[in-house]
Design a protein around this nucleic acid. Sequence first.
DNA 1: TAGATTGTTAATCGATTAACAATC
DNA 2: TAGATTGTTAATCGATTAACAATC
Lengths: 215, 215
Amino acid sequence: MSKSLISAPVIKRLPRYYRFLGELEKQGFIRISSRELSEKMGLTASQIRQDLNCFGGFGQQGYGYNVKELHRTIGEILGINAGNRTILIGAGNLGSAIASHIDFKKRGFELVGIFDSDPEKTGQIISGISVSHTDSIEKFCKEKNPVCAVLCIPKTAAQEIANKLVTLGIKGFWNFSHYDLKMEHNDSIVVENVHLADSLMTLAYGLHSNAENNV
Amino acid sequence: MSKSLISAPVIKRLPRYYRFLGELEKQGFIRISSRELSEKMGLTASQIRQDLNCFGGFGQQGYGYNVKELHRTIGEILGINAGNRTILIGAGNLGSAIASHIDFKKRGFELVGIFDSDPEKTGQIISGISVSHTDSIEKFCKEKNPVCAVLCIPKTAAQEIANKLVTLGIKGFWNFSHYDLKMEHNDSIVVENVHLADSLMTLAYGLHSNAENNV
DNA sequence: TAGATTGTTAATCGATTAACAATC
DNA sequence: TAGATTGTTAATCGATTAACAATC
């Protein structure tokens, strides 16, 4: 068990801090105060200090934070160097795009296998990896022990495949299947659901409500 | 102006309600109580009743909610039938996948144009639409008046293109560019940032923190 | 040292949950 | 009618913001 002691809102903000600090480092910033960073990010300085202090005192009174050091530290906290071995299931439009477009290495992952149930896709090379048939997942997992799976499959198949993958040792899911995976009674499995359609509908609401109010 | 009176957490939950109700409708449910729905969705019944009552009293005491009717109503609230004319900029891996994979129609959008700065891409057909060169965006907007833009371009180009699109009448952005668009002093523009890399890093954190705690 | 800015505690704000009267 | 379940108000909880003493 042992749920993280850090609250979800804080964790969700970490990648954004990481992103901004990386940018600042590139731009040559050596140090930055919580106030300066808060203005750039559109947060309060208080929140930044509270957030960072969940993990330790990374700043220095009267000086601020060392940009490079803080960037590196947050990367460490996020697990940027974990190299989690990862498989991707479903080499359709979206799956292929995710495989090619996302820099897994930079985010703490290593893409080691791509699978699809369509025999026509088998053998295709995506992002330097040859697509295998889903039938071979079990064998692959036993040999290579991946810990993470990206699901780019229809929602009807998602839960079943996820359950099977858990028995094969998968500990984390990046789920694009328009379905909320349920991993009941199993706190050791982490799931990140990406609901692109939900995101788009939130945008629809924004446009709709603005239009209604003649903004 | 006129910021929505509904809080962001509520709005973000609407698409999920919509999804679950659609599923229930398909499964033949005629009515459902807040308690029953709360169990299926992993929320409290209180929250569901509070959320729905932001928009009106859709239920009936002693009975619950009519599934079909509630589904339809939430769709209406989200603006599922708005048919927002939409252009997509950046026909790379991700852009093409989004264009093909997302059912824009079903979410209140109509994809009417795809643009890329690479002349090699011009003329390619993606999701039934011929890719045009970005140089022609201005002309296109003046003729077709799209209201929404999907940005699948590198982060370095995002802000500049977005600014230009705003002058051409674009009111909403679905932004995949790994960059937080800033539309200052302009409440009439809505932005939905999709940070796939941030999502992946949140997953990295989950795996990392679980591993640390020997879960 | 004086000035700046953190780390941290206390106050506020907002969101979630609980309770219950209204009512189908 | 009696039972069920809503709509809504009140209580609680947690997250954000403000304040300030500690300290570089």
